[in-house]
Amino acid sequence: MSTPVMDEPILELDDLVTSYRLTRGIGRSGGEVRAVAGVSLTVRAGETVGLVGESGCGKSTVARTIVGLVRPSSGRVLFEGRDLSTLPAQEMRLLRQDIQLIFQDPYASLNPRMTVAALLKEPWRIHRGLVPRERWDEEVRSLLDRVGLRAEHADRYPHQFSGGQRQRIAIARALAVRPRLIVCDESVSALDVSVRAQILNLLKDLQRDLGVAYLFISHDLGVVRHICDRVAVMYLGKIVEVGSKDSVYRHPSHPYTQALLSAAPSLDDWRDDERREIVLGGDVPSPLSPPSGCRFRTRCWQAQDRCREEEPALIERDTDHPVACHFPAPS
């Protein structure tokens, strides 16, 4: 539910660009993929912002850039107003405590050689002084309890748990450093429906109790609608629409958002068999050679000559709901 302070931004992405250099054979460069091609986005303290889009559109790259696993080619990542790329290494490492990342596959993201207790204590070994050593065991127990695991789980290894339990461990581990922002990259996508609901509820409870903010990355529009306050829709490295959950889901303005919402299966789909369904043709173009003008124009049923020539900017019209389209649907 609504959280203590929900106004000042804690994370700001400012025209972020992240590229991967492709290597072809040894040493030879095969060009660059602009996986994130100019993304601006704000996450405020204690809120949940959803980032949706199809695979390959650059969601994980945004996540990896925020937590510092890859360096941006240009643009800025500001955490509480401070530019992460200009921070000295030492301060950067301290700041790492404030931003945590939870991956899609909890098994791959937990060191298989470490017990749960060791996994949870690892951050305290790294950031000495965060939790005094004599309180480690107690703290481990309280973290496990917090995420719905039992104290005796502490001595087991990740492979002895089910998928949902492993994700709980990953969450506990992220919480161990008391972060202010958690980036969840498809963190519930690999889970079965019933377990997914447990984890979604847990994430919500944690936010209510601890005031942590989430950047919640997912390709599942239903889940995003459930958990997020605001939503950004990404296509081929760019954000095409962003706004409050209600405005985006009730009045999608970008043709891509409309198609995405129409394509997402829902429990009610059996009711209207011949419902107006927008089925996009073709596939997402390669980010190696994005289309000129609007990146979506090759699949867009609204596209006109102007879309080929001029790239639409992400502009706010009358509302707090910017759309990057020359011909957005009226809201």
């Binding site: 609901a197 447990q198 609608r225 459930h226």
Partner: peptide, 24 residues
């Protein structure tokens, strides 16, 4: 019934989902 209630829907308004406890 549990599966249906565990799926987020536009109507739930973000209220907690009724997850099925435990595991298969």
């Amino acid at each position: 019934l549990g599966l249906m209630r565990a799926v987020p829907t536009p109507r739930d308004g973000g209220a907690p989902l009724e997850a099925i406890d435990g595991q298969p």
